[in-house]
Design a protein around this nucleic acid. Sequence first.
RNA 1: GCGAGAGUGGCGGAACUGGCAGACGCGCUGGACUUAGGAUCCAGUGGGGAAACCUGUAGGGGUUCAAAUCCCCUCUCUCGCACCA
Length: 840
Amino acid sequence: MEVIKLAGKYVAEETELKWQGRWAGQGSFKCLADDPRPKFYCLEMFPYPSGRIHMGHVRNYAIGDVIARYKRMRGFSVLHPMGWDSFGLPAENAAIKQGAHPAQWTSENIAYMRKQLARLGLSYDWSREVTTCLPEYYRWNQWFFIKMFERGVAYRKSSFVNWCPSCLTVLANEQVIDGMCWRCDSQVVQKELEQWFLRITQYQDELLKDLETLKGWPENVTLMQKNWIGRSEGVEARFRVDGTGDEIVIFTTRADTLFGAEFVCIAPGHHVAETFQMDAGALNQVKERYGKLDEKHGLFTGRYAVNPVNGKKIPIYIANFVLMEYGTGAIMSVPAHDQRDYEFAAKYGLPVKTVVVSADGPAAPEGKAFEEDGMLVDSGEFTGLKSADARNKIAAWLQQKGLGRKVVNYRLRDWGISRQRYWGTPIPVIYCPGCGAVAVPEDQLPVRLPTDVKFTGKGGSPLAESPSFVNTSCPKCGGPARRETDTMDTFMDSSWYYVRYCSTKDEYALDKNNIKRFMPVDQYVGGVEHAVLHLLYSRFFMRIIRDLGISDVSEPFSSLLTQGMVCMETLKCPEHGWLYPSEAKGGVCAHCGKPVEKGRTEKMSKSKRNIVDPDHLISNYGADTARLFSLFAAPPEKDLEWSEKGVDGSYRFIQRLWNLVFSNIEKLNSVKGFSPEAITPVVRKTHQTIMRVTRDIERDYHFNTAIAAMMELVNAIQAEFASGKEDLKDVRFALEKTLLLLSPFCPHAASELWEALGNGDIQTQKWPEYDAEAAKEEEIELVIQINGKVRSKIMVAAGTPDEKLKELALADSKTAEATAGKGIKNVFVVRGRLVNIVVK
RNA sequence: GCGAGAGUGGCGGAACUGGCAGACGCGCUGGACUUAGGAUCCAGUGGGGAAACCUGUAGGGGUUCAAAUCCCCUCUCUCGCACCA
């Protein structure tokens, strides 16, 4: 090893394995709850164990690891755990395809990926590892479910659900994207099933309001949650159905347009629709187009509704664009002031009555509804009021007459958690013919997944196929009973795992003291794709945990960093389609020799084949390079474009530093223990670099500029050596500080070089301090502008007063040249930087 | 359609509260050392020009002594929501 080093060749693997072995052996990253130092909880979103990590993981975990290591050096007791979000469909699909049991498939994947993470040198406390598919974890999912069931937060109802005919399961609304399954892109259909729901809507106001307290979250994420919750204030108004005793309750946010209602539209599933005698075929047509975006379809019911404000009889339509799930499933249609109603009225030849006019601004363009607020006309006693005022007065009027009331509506719906799948947490409920749905008693938890299940992939819940699982006795009356055979949405698992990490594997899962010690998470790092799903469910769960008296915390994640995607150029062969980079060497297709077309840069994905395998990357360059490049190529929140050449650059930087140390190792070690005697340029640069790196990390983790600063310093050190006039004490000082700064980014190389300088373990070192005085330049370059254009630059002593700067600038020969014959109108001085002379 | 964000060299990206545009890296050009170089080191590198100098941060206008940064308009791209009444 020594020989290799002296030959000036940086060999990453050897060094990295050495340090990884040492850290593991010493338990370097164990976090103890009774540590007297202040805590810092640094968390990255745990992965689904799909088999191998991808570059997105590398980036995510590199970011988190730098933060964890930096905070350790800053004197925090850092909790930095890792685990596995290990329930879910792929394991089951693999079982159907390959016959391996999901448990086996999953644990093999975990074993492999754990090694991959270790190979990256990530500083995790593995004694807290969480694996959600293990009974010791998922029993707590069941426990939470029971607690929610007892409190009425978990409940059962029959409802139309989003059904993916390919995955053969129910999807949450959040998992339906443009009418397609989020996982397999199949068209989602509606199916009626008995389902378990969690009453997240009970917390909707709080979840909305507390978004304001999340100062450490990116605004776009809180905004997405806000829109998702979708609070809107309006009124419900009751429209009597003429000739029957029925009523249709509509919801509107525009009570000011009530006098302009020309018809009423109800959703195809609305209960009043069933009372009407209608052509079944025509009704079915509307139903088929329900929720489809293309065109509006309606069916006149032959009935009329009575507008409560003016007694006007208006036709009732069943319309495909009215959603059953939102509001009351019925609307009043005001074609003059709502674009959708306008289009509907145009299609079916219905009247358009204007009741709001613009006070001063422009009227609506021809063929469009006027949707702005304005002043009321033709609205009885409310005529002449402004919209906002009218909304209040009309609402009050309705309320007083018992014809309506003010309401607040939410877009958010309760969370359906039932899944007709095997590889998830069994829902701990027993159905007894006498007692109904009964929760499994706590002391009988966990309800384990049975192992005698066949994976056919055909319909229904696999658990129903296991008689030993299904048949049981009622916990209440002891009579024969059946178990619930659905399993839970896997988002349950990830909604509270961060709480589980607060205790080690051996400790009680919900230890209050541990949770108090570590919660909330100080820094959470993950992909923006979880902006609503996982992050909203977690916020909901934390409140459940709070209300169960386990914690005082409401918000689980104080600060959130959403890292950008890892992208790469796509390559395409006209004949063979997408190509891996290795199939396109030399710009031609490896299969047919045709020139390769370069496509646009897109998120790395297997289907587009624009991927880099972390294993290859690490075996070619090492973990330090992989980490360094993922942090250097872009700031964390932005997308990162992967570039092989860029990786070379990062590798070369480490190598340069490495060579700098080892080719001067004896000289450097001859001054061990000495400090610089004066503030020489390289010493000053060192202080400046510490300042910059610290600032860049503290300011939203701008690692890319922090790394750039370190590169500058290394370049400066190199120049010192190259000059042949280096002061050994100074360069040793500079190198040591560089290694300390670099150690969170490239921990292995930094450790090795630190040790080579005779310094022991860098892990135990503090983050370096800088001396602001020493960082100050003695001389500054004063920029002299004439009329805003740079005309000259002169060196002046730092701290020169403004008056003197002005004098110097005016005395400058180039200034004289440029101002010759022109009168000086004004002179502006920017302290210590610039003088701008304004001439005629 | 609504909402959010972004547009800077050949490329990824810098530029703190308006004050030298292009840090750092890649690429490229020239040179050194070499049997060799896709290694390493040195120098150069926004565009135009021999030079002084001119010009330049998507496009157009404005504020200012001074604008990538602030204001208005236009264009393009990315993301989120999308018949939510």
